[in-house]
Design a protein around this nucleic acid. Structure first.
Length: 345
DNA sequence: CGGGACAGAAGA
DNA sequence: TCTTCTGTCCCG
């Protein structure tokens, strides 16, 4: 019986030489000649089996698959490189609740390269989803997957809960006008001008030294039957952004994002036929008043005491927000509900 | 929707 | 006893 290592080496060389020969075109069938020539081997490739005798440096799996998202993980920075999703109206509604999910290290990531919750605690940075939990309302397990730290980057809390949150809401709202929405999200580490040279500078947090991105990006593709596919690329600074700036302020040519990220997005998409997303659609985020009303609605929903209900309602009055009928009804309903609950106790 | 801080319970 | 986890409350 042959030596296993010997077998492995032989297979290794064969694979390399075949790939190389194809690349060099030596295996092309000749039109004129019928005699079969010996296949030349690129001497550089021939050396590879010796050079790589003890293996090829390993970045880990290039692509990792989850219930409802796919990502590539950056083992050096302890953050994803990119996270891809497909959103439609079926996925963004359902009983799944983030209160049942927990942030935790991704068990599929080598322990040497994983991030931990402790890295984020008291770091000044929040744990920002790339594939959002809210895109997985249809299934609790799919939502739980998005809380694995392989899908998380250190994100400014105001940005996460504010502008980026509204950006994610816009992506979900696209499904009311487009059947299928495809999104790739991820972190960027962009250079800044410092004296005479550009430098890339970013903090790292915790014992795992998780890298804090300078910016976040999204590439959004929206599809609808019988209309041109639309695509938009956005680069958002990882810092507080109030209601002044518009989403279109952060739109960039996708080629610019590709140069910065080193990634080609949607290589199978015929870009010459694609339209600018912000011309096909509004690219308008919800307004400050709409956002604050939404938040108050969510707080009312989750209120557990009468005191809390009254406090939230007072907040609404202080901000001079006009509640719609739904909110008025919800307020009345919660008051009755919690009064009954208190009389039980 | 997006998050964190904290106290007390549960576990080593 | 000290550490870790979970539930609860809080914020925009």
């Amino acid at each position: 019986m042959a030596n296993p290592r010997r077998l492995f080496t032989r297979g290794f060389v064969y694979g390399l030489t075949t790939a190389s020969a194809l690349a060099y075109g030596y295996l092309q069938l000749s039109n004129e000649e019928e005699d079969i020539k010996p296949v030349p081997v690129d001497p550089k490739v021939k050396r590879a089996s010796d050079i790589l005798k003890y293996g090829i440096p390993d970045r880990g799996p290039t692509v990792r698959y989850y219930q409802n998202h796919v990502l590539s993980y950056d083992q050096a920075r302890r953050t994803p490189l990119w996270v891809a999703e497909h959103i439609n109206s079926q996925h963004i509604q359902g009983p799944a609740n983030r209160k049942h999910s927990k942030f935790r290290p991704d068990p599929s990531v080598d322990p040497m390269f994983t991030a931990h919750n402790g890295d984020y605690w008291k770091s000044g940075w929040s744990r920002g989803h790339m594939a959002p939990a809210g895109d997985n309302k249809f299934d609790q397990e799919a939502m739980n997957d998005t809380f694995l730290l392989s899908n998380i980057v250190p994100q400014n809390l105001q940005n996460n809960a504010g502008f980026w949150n509204r950006f994610e809401m816009y992506c979900r709202d696209l499904t009311s006008r487009f059947e299928d929405v495809y999104v790739v999200s991820g972190p960027l580490y962009l250079p800044t001008q410092e004296d005479e040279q550009k430098v890339v500078k970013y903090p790292v947090i915790g014992e795992s030294e998780v890298a804090v991105p300078t910016h976040l990006y999204k590439v959004v593709v929206a599809e609808r039957f019988n209309t041109p596919t639309s695509i938009g690329a956005f680069i958002v600074p990882n810092q507080p952004i109030d209601f002044g700036p518009k989403l279109t302020d952060f739109q960039v040519p996708i080629e610019d994002l590709e140069k910065s990220s080193g990634l080609k997005f949607y290589p199978q998409l015929d870009r010459s036929k694609a339209k600018n997303l912000c011309e096909m659609d509004s690219c308008k985020l919800i307004t400050q008043k709409e956002f604050e009303l939404w938040i108050i609605g969510r707080k009312l929903q989750s209120a557990r005491t009468q005191e809390r209900v009254e406090k939230v309602w007072k907040e609404l009055e202080e901000k001079k927000l006009k509640p719609d009928q739904y909110l008025v009804d919800l307020y009345a309903k919660k008051k009755v509900e919690l009064a009954a609950k208190q009389s039980e106790e």
